[in-house]
């Protein structure tokens, strides 16, 4: 899975995988290949000065992002920041700087697990998790989410199913997802599915509610 390979870095939370030596300094025997560094300079014309305000308006209490002191608490309580291309702190800083393009293309909001640790711990009480959701909305709207990354695909599959039936059925969601992302997984995980089925934990009957029309009317009314 290429995406996974890109994202996987050494997680400081757990043991180094077996066989991987401790990082050490010293003489290398092999010359490492020179890699060009991405141009990090930002011209004011490339930045969107209204971006922070746009995000702030999307979220209840979002205006507090202007008060961020860049302390990094969010990044360090985040269980997944090691897998993010921008730590939550940097994402806030870049939002504030108006680096719209980098922010909406970032994987960070899609890596976020919505565990709310950052929201609870932020000393400035910035609703960071909700800001992540707002950034996901923009990235879905503008189709800037990472390709072949399952979370946005699943999000859409999930929403479609509920719009249609009012409830989701895990087995069907998974099926859809495999088909859309990596059908090979269907075979790989067949054993798990079989086990769950025998344990009675794999609902195969597609659930749906009676008030489907009512639900669609409600969703339409609230978006009107």
């Amino acid at each position: 899975m290429p995406v996974d390979a890109v994202l996987t870095t050494r997680d400081p939370e757990v043991d180094r995988p077996p066989g991987r030596p401790a990082p050490r300094s010293g003489n290398r025997t092999k010359r490492t290949k020179w890699r060009p560094v991405k141009d990090q300079s930002k011209f004011e014309a490339q930045l969107d000065p209204g971006f922070a305000a746009e995000i702030a308006a999307e979220v209840e209490g979002g205006e507090r992002l202007h008060q961020c002191i860049q302390c990094g608490t969010c990044s360090s309580v985040c269980p997944l920041s090691a897998y993010m291309d921008l730590t939550p702190r940097r994402l806030i800083a870049m939002t504030r700087a108006g680096a719209r393009d980098d922010v909406v293309h970032s994987m960070t909001p899609w890596v976020c697990a919505s565990c709310y640790a950052c929201t609870v711990e932020c000393p400035k009480q910035i609703p960071i998790t909700e800001i992540m959701h707002a950034l996901r909305r923009i990235s879905l709207r503008e189709i800037t989410y990472p390709k072949r990354f399952t979370t946005p695909v699943m999000t859409k599959a999930f929403v479609d199913m509920i719009q249609d039936r009012g409830r989701s059925t895990e087995s069907w969601i998974s099926m859809k997802l495999y088909l859309r992302t990596n059908p090979a997984l269907l075979v790989k995980n067949a054993a798990i599915a079989g086990r769950l089925f025998r344990q009675g934990r794999l609902g195969v009957r597609r659930a749906r509610i009676n008030g489907r029309d009512e639900l669609r009317a409600l969703l339409k009314a609230v978006s009107a």
Binding site: H133, R136, S223
Partner: peptide, 10 residues
């Protein structure tokens, strides 16, 4: 958490 990623009001 999927739906808030699409539409918060909904």
């Amino acid at each position: 958490t999927a739906w808030p990623s699409v539409d918060q009001s909904q």
